[in-house]
């Protein structure tokens, strides 16, 4: 199953409860494309958090709201509030490490 893409219409509602990993990305960004299988894998194994994506090319307002100045950028959100961020290509282990500090 593909990871749900969020838009400004459904963003707040989707991340308002629990822990969410939101990947801000764009199609022409090579490191972003390399993150895709990692996130896919993470999403399939996730039991106590959710994984979403935001295409910053289509969702420029969300990009600006979250001060996205470098992609890929992962925001780890708990109950609607950004708790951590990881910038650049990263490993599944690193993402899990960060999630575990929040859950």
């Amino acid at each position: 199953m593909n990871i749900t893409e969020l838009t400004k219409e459904n963003f707040k509602e989707s991340v308002k409860e629990g822990v969410s990993v939101v990947d801000f990305w764009a199609p022409w960004c090579a490191p972003c494309n390399m993150m895709t299988p990692i996130l896919q894998n993470l999403s399939e194994e996730a039991t106590n958090f959710k994984v979403f994506k935001v295409n910053v090319d289509q969702e420029q307002e969300l990009g600006a709201e979250f001060n996205i100045m470098s992609i890929p950028c992962l925001k780890i959100i708990k109950d609607g509030e950004v708790k951590e961020e990881i910038i650049g290509l990263t490993s599944k282990e690193r993402i899990l490490e960060v999630i575990n500090t929040i859950i």
Partner: peptide, 17 residues
């Protein structure tokens, strides 16, 4: 400032500016 304005990948991040 990496990721907050400092970047090493113009093609990835250029359009954000």
């Amino acid at each position: 400032f990496i990721g907050k304005g400092v970047t090493y990948c113009t093609t990835c991040d250029g359009f954000l500016y």
